[in-house]
Amino acid sequence: MTTKPLDAAVLPQRAVPAGKPAQDTRVTIRGTAKTTRRPTVPRSVRRAAGPVGLVLLWFLTSATGVLPESVLASPVDVVRQAVDLTRNGELPSAIAASGRRAGIGFLIGATLALALALLAGLFRLGEDVIDSSMGMFRAIPWVGLIPLFIVWFGIEETPKIALVALGVTYPLYFNIYGGIRSTDAQLVEAARMMGLGRLGLIRYVILPSALPGALVGLRYALSTAWLALVFAEQINADAGLGYLMSNAQQYFRTDIIVLCLAVYALLGLACDFAVRILSRRLLTWRANFEGDA
């Protein structure tokens, strides 16, 4: 090794703070190539370990009586309830009713968000009129609008759907609008030079470049949709998961409450998963950072 004397001879000596030993100025870069790595637990197993462990802890504390049933039912009871309620059709019909509300609300909210984002993103007049208003409305906590919605829409389905639609509109609007406005001006210029008209520009340049943002917005919007539904179904529901839950509450049935919460969570997870699959398929053109191993 000739580095050491060379270092000393050629490089100017750096001042070393008093009291600190002179450090070796070289670093070793250790290889992490697959061949030299010891076998590791697969990622899917690592990811599952946390949730499975928590459920196991829940089961053990319930079985040993540390966690009384009046506080939280055992996972075994919850699963039993799931089977019973599925057999007698209560759970499927509740999920269908809730899903319908979430679906219709989401469609209305998404359409509204897309239309507003396009108007605000593509036209300066639209931006001036819409964007400031959206900023103002966003400051209102949408859950706080429930009393007003009951006054306006009664206690039937309409206020529930409206609340979901409202919850969906904001995250989608802001992400699509932001995406449209972050379009690379150089690409727009090149595409115009190649003869694209206004519609062509929107279709081939502006919308695709807004897509990554829109998909982030979609993930937010779907989780907000289920959240809004939980709130909305507290309003005099006669069907749906919220109805099942408020009934259970009256009889202190923590097993049914936990079951309904689990179903909400699973529906949310399923939506998130669907968007992630969609993102992967739609954004194959993008170079992504996949995270450190």
Partner: peptide, 18 residues
């Protein structure tokens, strides 16, 4: 800078706007 649209395959970039 080449200014190709990253979301279109190379050949679609070539005939873009025709």
């Amino acid at each position: 800078s080449p200014r190709l649209l990253p979301w279109l395959k190379v050949w679609r970039n070539v005939v873009l706007g025709l």
